[in-house]
Design a protein around this nucleic acid. Sequence first.
DNA 1: ACGCCCACCTGGAGGC
DNA 2: TGCCTCCAGGTGGGCG
Length: 279
Amino acid sequence: MPELPEVETVRRGLIPRMVGRRIARLTQRRKDLRVPLPSRFAEKLEGRTILAIDRRAKYLLLRLDVGETLVVHLGMSGRMTLHDAQSAAEHPFDRHDHVVFDLDDGWQVRFNDARRFGLMLLIPTEAVAEHKAFAGLGPEPLDELFDGPALAARLKGKRTPIKAALLDQKTLVGVGNIYACEALFLSGISPRRSAHTVQGVRAARLADAIKEVLLRSIDDGGSTLRDHVQPGGELGYFQTRFNVYDRSGAPCPTPDCGHLVTRLVQSGRSTFYCARCQR
DNA sequence: ACGCCCACCTGGAGGC
DNA sequence: TGCCTCCAGGTGGGCG
C-alpha cells in the first residue's frame, strides 16, 4: 500500500490517539509478518508509554518511554485502524488483524496486513540508524536539504533507468511506484532515461516534481487504490489526481498532446508514462 | 559493487 | 457459480 504520503498520513492519524498513551495490553495474533515478530513481544510492550511517532523513509517509529523504538513498516497492504471501546467491542477481529494495541484510555489500534509484507522491530532508539533496515537509506525528499544538486549527486554514475533509480531507497527514500511515475511525468523525463544523465536542470525539475507530488498527496490523505485508509477510516483522494499511474490507454493530460499513456515493465514493475511529453 | 530477477503472501478483477 | 490467470503501493537475498 504505502509510499511516503500514505505512511505520513497514517503517522498523522495515529499521533492524536497514541502519543502520551500507555499500552495497556498487546495482543499478538500471529507469530510472524515478513519476519518473526520480536520474542516475548507483548511482554516487552505492555505498560510502555508512546512518547512520539516519527517517520523515516516508509517506516513509522514509535518512540517508547524507556529508550526503545517500535519500528513499523506497512509493506504493501498494511494498515492501522482505530477503534474506540464500543467500536472494538462491536467489530470482531479480521483474520489479518495481526497485532492489536489496547491503550489505557480504552482505544484500540489494529495492525492489519493481508499480504504480511509488513515488519515490526523493537530496537534501542540509538541503534535505529545503524540497523540494517536503515543503514544506507538515501535522503528524505521533503527535507529542505534535498534539491536538484543533491539528487544529481545521488544519480551520478548510475547506469540503471531513472525509474528504477527512484525506486531504490538508497537513491532517496519514500518514493515508490506511483510517485516515481507521477514525478517523472511532471518533470517531463522518460522513465527509460539512464539515471546518470539526469543532471543540472533536469535533476532540479525532477527534485521539484518529487516534492510537489508528495506534498500534494499528503494534503489529500494519500492515495487509496485498494486498501489505504487513514487510521480513522477516511480514504485518501490523491488517486483522483493521477496523471499517468494506472492510466494506460488514457489520453495524456498535457493539453493538445494527443498521445496515449503507455504501460511498460521495468525491473518487474509497471511504469506508466507519455512517450511524447517525457524524454 | 552494481544491477537484475525473484520470492515472499493474499485477494481482487477480469476472462472463459 | 467457479476456476484460472494476472496484477497489486515494498523489500531484500542471491545471482551473474
